[in-house]
Structure formats: C-alpha cells, structure tokens
C-alpha cells in the first residue's frame, strides 16, 4: 500500500506533465499582454533612440545624421581631450551643486511654514506651489526681464540701495548663478508640494507626545520631522538631481550657453553639437556620457543614501 502523501505526489506529477510548456507559461503570457502597451511605447520612444544613440556614438556622420565612417571609441577620446566639453562638465557639476541643495532647503523651509495651522495658510500653499504650473519658457522670459541690466527689477533694487548694478546674464562670473536662481525658483513648486505632502503624512500624535515630554520646536524638527521625512527627501533629491543634469530650456532662452560658454550645460552642449555643428557622432557620445553620469550618481545615492532612510 502506498501512503496517501505519495499518491498525492504522483497525481501532481501526472497533472504537471499533461500541462506542457504552453500551459505553464500562462502567467508569463498574461503578464506580457498587460505590459504590451508600455513596452511598445518605451521601445519606440526610449529603447530605440537609446540604441541608435549608442550606435551613432561610434561613427562620424554626415549633415543628415547618417552614419558614415566607423571610428570606434575615437569620439569619446576626442571628447575627453576637448576643452569645451570639460568646461561644460564643470559648469554642469557646479550648476547641480548650486541648485539641488539650495532648492530643497528652501522648499523644506517653505513647507514647514505652510504646515503651520494659521488662518489663510491655504493661500500661501497655493502661491508656493504655483511655479509648478508655469512652463519653463514662460518663467525664463519673466526672469529675462528681471535680469535686464538697465530696466530689470533686480538691478533697480540694487540701484535704489545705492549699489552697482550687475550684468546678471552677460557677466561670465554671474551667468551660471543667474541661471541657477531661475532654476531653483522654477523647481520650488514641485519640491515644496511633495515635501508638504510628506510632512502632513506624519502622525500628529508623535508631536503631541514629544510636547508632553517637553521637546522644543527644533528638537522635534531634528528628531521627528526630518527622520520621518527621509523617504520623501530621498525621492525629491533623486528627482532634482536628474532634473538638474538635464536642464535645457532656461539655458536656451536666457543665455544660449554664453557668455564665453560659462552656462553651456551638458544637454545644451549636446544640442549645439548635434543641431548647430551637425556633429551627431560626438553629440551621441556626450549623451552616452551624460547617461552614465546620471546612472552612477543615482546608484551611489541609492547605495549610500538609502541606508539613512526610514521607510514606514
């Protein structure tokens, strides 16, 4: 007599054999069906262009962007020796350092303010978040006026205080800073909104409990708000970093990469290389370089940053 367990095992085997590959892959096929729309979209707009970019980065191209001569890694070697490219990298790194921490600190500060329970606070919340609804082009034009050397609002304030006006966008020392200020202003809306959402998600009782223990505002901020906000901050930092690396619109409108290439951020440099100089090969090589940079930064951030993050 075989035991019941053995019998069951045999039965299972019989059933499995009968099913065959077609039956067993049922789940996979179902999943694939659901994924199909996004797979198609991603392929057309993301995977294909990426493959093409990688391909082009190994070639010299004609003016139509067709691959002509295979040059291997020469495009990359050329880039690493090109002074303009190194300058562009330096400008991009500086730009990231200027915009990301400042933008997040300002947004955090505004979010903390807007979280207070005061009358009419909804008005301020809307105002602080409003830059999210303004396009890059529109806000750049606004700042173009503010930065105007003679009739710009900023220089007028400086003049009325008795100072010497600044050539915001025309002075190589100031231009990158000016573009950074514009960018910070534009990004605040989104960052503010996400951080405010994060703050409002924190259980009010935690603060009440701390209050009973006698913790002051800054103690609560340090020991409760910031740690509880860490996943939100992590998300916001990641998104801001990637955004900063990819900045294009405001550079195009405010400075066109000038003066003397001081604001020639990498994406703008790629654009110029490809569509002004028609060097699609080197432009592609730059794109791949940018992609690798963002990849490395993001991986590093996840590796080191995430340890300090507390998830619920």
């Amino acid at each position: 007599m075989k035991s019941q367990v053995e019998l069951n095992g045999m039965l299972d085997n019989v059933v499995k054999k009968k099913k065959g590959i077609w039956q067993q892959s049922l789940n996979w096929r179902t999943a694939l069906l659901y994924l199909l729309p996004s797979l198609i979209l991603f392929s057309v707009f993301l995977f294909y262009p990426m493959g093409k970019t990688l391909y082009l980065s190994f070639f010299l191209t004609d003016r139509q962007g067709e691959a002509n001569v295979f040059v291997g890694l020469e495009n990359y070697l050329y880039l690493l020796e090109s002074e303009a490219f190194l300058k562009s990298i330096k400008a991009t790194i500086l730009f990231v350092l200027y915009t990301v921490p400042t933008g997040i600190i300002i947004s955090l500060f505004l979010a903390l303010l807007a979280n207070e329970k005061l009358k009419g606070i909804g008005f301020f919340r809307t105002i602080f978040a409003s830059t999210m609804g303004i396009s890059v082009a529109a806000s750049s034009v606004v700042w173009l006026f503010l930065f105007h050397p003679s009739v710009g609002f900023l220089n007028k304030i400086i003049a009325s205080l008795g100072g010497q006006g600044v050539d915001w966008l025309l002075d190589p020392k100031w231009a990158l800073l000016s573009v950074s200020i514009t960018t910070i202003w534009m990004n605040i809306g989104f960052t503010f909104l996400i951080i405010l959402g994060g703050i409002q998600n924190i259980d009010e009782h935690l603060y009440e409990s701390a209050k009973i223990d006698g913790a002051g505002y800054f103690y609560q901020l340090r020991r409760i708000t910031i740690p509880m906000l860490s996943p939100t901050l992590f998300f916001v930092i990641t998104v801001s970093l990637i955004n900063a690396f990819q900045t294009f619109g405001q550079v195009d409108i405010l400075t066109q990469g000038g003066p003397s290439e001081s604001t020639n951020l990498i994406v703008y440099s790629i654009y110029r290389e490809a569509f002004v100089n028609y060097q699609f090969g080197t432009a592609s090589a730059q794109s791949i370089f940018l992609f690798l940079c963002i990849l490395v930064v993001t991986i590093l951030q996840f590796k080191f940053g995430e340890k300090k993050v507390h998830y619920q």
């Binding site: 009782h205 009440e208 209050k211 006698g214 409760i224 509880m228 860490s230």
Partner: peptide, 18 residues
Amino acid sequence: PSKRDISMVFQNYALYPH
C-alpha cells in the same frame, strides 16, 4: 503640557517608528 508633570499613553501608542 511639559510643565504639568504628566505622562500620556495615546490611543494609537504614538511610538516613533524610526
């Protein structure tokens, strides 16, 4: 609250999750 010499256990415990 801190000057009232009290301690409190909240309905949902209010433990600091982090």
